[in-house]
């Protein structure tokens, strides 16, 4: 097999994770290393002292060009539990509004001795641009870029699935809803196929599924009934409010009728199926409260696991 002459920008010369930009293109071993490392970090959060000294003296800059309180908070908690110093920059309301370019912002922060940049940006590819321009000892973690990727969310979904289902290689995973606009779905699909999940399904109206999505290795369904049959894992996606009455959908009520998850539709999945949601949820739009709060829901454990997974990612990249 001929080796690509273009090096994966996420890996260093030894094939180790230098930046986390996307799950796409990451080898199976690296994904498993992150999931394996997250397990002992999950234990740390249950101790009397919920902190380990790994990143003592290192600075983590949360660079959020797009607002997301929850994602920023979980990165902040993860960095603090690793003993790093955390600096939160809500850049959407500071320098850029004064006209500073993305790379100038990063260069300035680098001059303040940054070690890790956690970048969230409305433009796909922004974290790649940052990664290409940082110094060798600096590391970039993508916290969501445009419609492209949200790798730590994808990884925490993978961690959650493995936690409850143990073995990826016998699973049917159904991803329901607005796949077209979802960077979460894209990251998760790449992770699931890389880890050998035999059946990944996407379920949604034609208007909310990307053209040619089958090329990612998924089966496409437009009916919940067929798509949920015998699923082990059901991942509900958030329907963003601007889509609810836009040209792609008639109304939120109509959407819930066809693609919202309620107890009756969930009964088509396997009896021990788990229900996941990346949050924030729209109750009554994509998911019924009886399911969101019901016995199959693992939505809140996802949040807890997300901290452990982000601790694992930060401590792996910052050490390479």
């Amino acid at each position: 097999m001929q080796r690509s002459s273009v090096r994966n920008p996420q890996l260093n010369a030894n094939g180790e994770l230098q930046h986390l930009l996307s799950i796409e293109g990451l080898p199976r071993e690296v994904l498993l290393q992150i999931l394996d490392t997250a397990e002992p970090f999950a234990d740390v959060t249950e101790r009397e002292v919920k902190k380990v000294p790994l990143l003592r003296g290192k600075s983590v800059f949360n660079l959020f060009f797009e607002n997301s309180t929850r994602t920023r908070t979980t990165f902040e908690i993860a960095a603090k539990r690793l003993s790093a110093d955390v600096i939160n920059l809500n850049v959407s309301v500071s320098s850029t509004s004064k006209g500073e370019s993305l790379l100038d912002t990063v260069a300035n922060l680098s001059a303040m001795q940054a070690d890790v940049f956690v970048v969230r940006h409305a433009s796909s590819g922004a974290p790649y641009l940052v990664a290409r321009h940082v110094k060798p000892h600096e590391h970039v973690i993508n916290a969501g870029d445009g419609r492209h990727a949200h790798p730590t969310q994808g990884l925490l979904d993978l961690y959650t699935i493995r936690h409850y289902k143990k073995d990826f290689t016998r699973l049917t995973v159904a991803i329901v809803g607005d796949v077209l606009h979802s960077r979460v779905a894209r990251s998760l699909i790449h992770g699931l196929t890389t880890l050998g999940v035999p059946e990944v399904r996407v379920i949604g109206p034609q208007t909310l599924l990307p053209a040619g999505v089958e090329a990612l290795g998924v089966r496409v369904f437009h009916q919940m009934r067929a798509g949920l049959a015998d699923a082990d894992v059901v991942v509900m996606l958030r329907l963003q409010s601007e889509r609810m009455n836009g040209p792609l959908l008639p109304s939120a009520q109509e959407y819930f009728k066809h693609y919202g998850l309620n107890a009756e539709k969930l009964a088509l999945a396997r009896r021990d199926a788990i229900v996941m949601h990346p949050g924030p949820m729209n109750r009554g739009v994509e998911i019924d409260s009886s399911v969101a709060d019901g016995p199959h829901s693992v939505i809140l454990p996802q949040v807890t696991f997300g901290i452990a997974v982000r601790m694992a990612v930060m401590s792996i990249v910052a050490g390479n």
């Binding site: 180790e16 394996d36 490392t37 234990d43 050490g319």
Partner: peptide, 12 residues
């Protein structure tokens, strides 16, 4: 850690 990075597969 600063020199060697994080060990692979830490146990719980």
């Amino acid at each position: 850690y600063a020199k060697q990075g994080l060990k692979h597969d830490p146990k719980r």
